[in-house]
Design a protein around this nucleic acid. Structure first.
Lengths: 155, 155
DNA sequence: ATAATAATAGTCAAACATAGTCAAAGCGTG
DNA sequence: CACGCTTTGACTATGTTTGACTATTATTAT
């Protein structure tokens, strides 16, 4: 769990201050300077790690006094959120992206750790290794959506 | 007991550091350099010697700051029974038979009701509806075996 | 007011840094 | 001496970093 690259470090930093308050406002260039990277790296971190499906809202403003605001939002409507994830999953999904969805389900308490691991084991690369890669992603999407749909049912 | 080949040596090395901590993170290229072999040799060693059945979980990431993480997990006592179920599952299994296997897992307390339902949702007919019926059963078998193998890990 | 300038943030693609796959060739053992 | 395990490397896939260029907003000068 060590930090292996700048993106991970910045992600951790931002999430740590997000624990203090549910909404933070940063200056892109300041963070970039603080972590000795180019400003656009911040955009990369945000785009890859602070997505809507993970429950983050991001707003920003350019020009003098510009900022980037990241907000951790609570889910208002469970069913709606699950539908969003289904939509995000789409007809086809890579293992990496599917992992992100399961992680989101875990973080939002739709799955516990054990359940998440079980689900992940059903569609990892080896399991779905077909001759055709496209089919692999299609089957994975079907499995994932079926699971999410199942989660809509109260046990 | 001699080390006749590099794969065995690398295996021993990795297992020796796994004795220190239950989870290790390596850089493929570093290990390859250390043992003077091509990087893909590491993949070979992992695929042949660090399998789930043997109680190892492997994750990896590519790109800058990439890594391979190997985790040693305890196996449940009655893994024998699980092996029987894997054997029963075989290369291909119908939905009906797979249902029986999941039911057996439930009755023997390897899965609770909710988990069992989640698993069942991953390989029902609709999800795995391919043009080809044979493939459907083959994929179902792979999924099921992957789940059973995961259940060997005492989480 | 309006135009120019400064101060931000966003986009995108190229360069770089890893790891994975696969099949052919090599080799050791029964 | 055949069979199966090991070794190798070319090719592929994926994730990160960088920087040139663009877009937007605020401030200042006219």
């Amino acid at each position: 769990m060590q930090n292996r690259n700048i993106s991970d470090i910045i992600e951790q930093y931002l999430k740590s201050i997000l624990k203090e308050s549910p909404s933070i406002e940063i200056k892109r260039s300041e963070i970039a300077q603080q972590f000795d990277c180019v400003p656009s790296q911040i955009n990369y971190v945000i785009k890859t790690r602070f997505t809507v499906q993970n429950g983050y809202l991001v707003e920003s403003k350019r020009g003098g006094g510009g900022y980037i605001r990241i907000e951790k939002v609570d889910l208002v409507d469970d069913a709606e959120y699950l539908n969003d994830l289904i939509e995000y999953t789409g007809k086809s999904i890579t293992e990496t992206d599917a992992f992100k969805v399961v992680q989101a389900l875990y973080e939002n308490h739709f799955l516990n750790r054990r359940e998440a691991n079980l689900i992940l084991s059903t569609f990892n690369r080896n399991v779905l290794a077909f001759s055709d890669h496209e089919i692999e992603d299609i089957v994975r999407a079907r499995i994932l959506k079926s699971v999410i749909n199942r989660l809509k049912c109260a046990d």
